[in-house]
């Protein structure tokens, strides 16, 4: 049997999106989130996580490409028990821009 294997999705052509997640702060939360993206081969370009002023919670910033799977990705992230909210920002959001100087 010959099957057509889909080409891996070229993400670089798509616009970038910044996702802002509010999550419970305990070990394991990051693994739940990263696992979701990893098994769907959905690349996370940037990731930043810090506790919030209420330290029982953390804020996670994710920089991702806005390909057609993003909608489903966000729905899946929202289903995670430790994810309290998900907000979407455009690429113009400054959180990753301000970090640039630590990387270049």
């Amino acid at each position: 049997m010959i099957e057509q294997v889909a080409e891996p999705l070229q993400q670089s052509g798509f616009a970038k999106v910044v996702l802002e997640l509010e999550v419970n702060n305990h070990p394991g939360v990051m693994s739940h989130i990263c696992n979701l993206f990893a098994r769907r081969a959905f690349n996370v370009e940037g990731i930043l996580c810090m506790p919030m002023s209420d330290t029982s919670k953390s804020r996670i910033w994710l920089l991702v490409f806005d390909d057609q799977r993003l909608e489903q990705m966000v729905l899946q992230v929202e289903k995670l028990v430790d994810v309290l909210s998900v907000r979407r920002h455009g690429a113009e959001h400054e959180v990753f821009d301000r970090l640039e100087r630590f990387f270049h």
Binding site: P27, G28, S31, H32, N35, L36, R39, L80, V81, D82
Partner: peptide, 14 residues
């Protein structure tokens, strides 16, 4: 087993 069952449970706890 916590790590292993992340993708196959609705949620898990250690």
């Amino acid at each position: 087993i916590y790590g292993m069952t992340v993708p196959i449970t609705k949620h898990n706890f250690l």
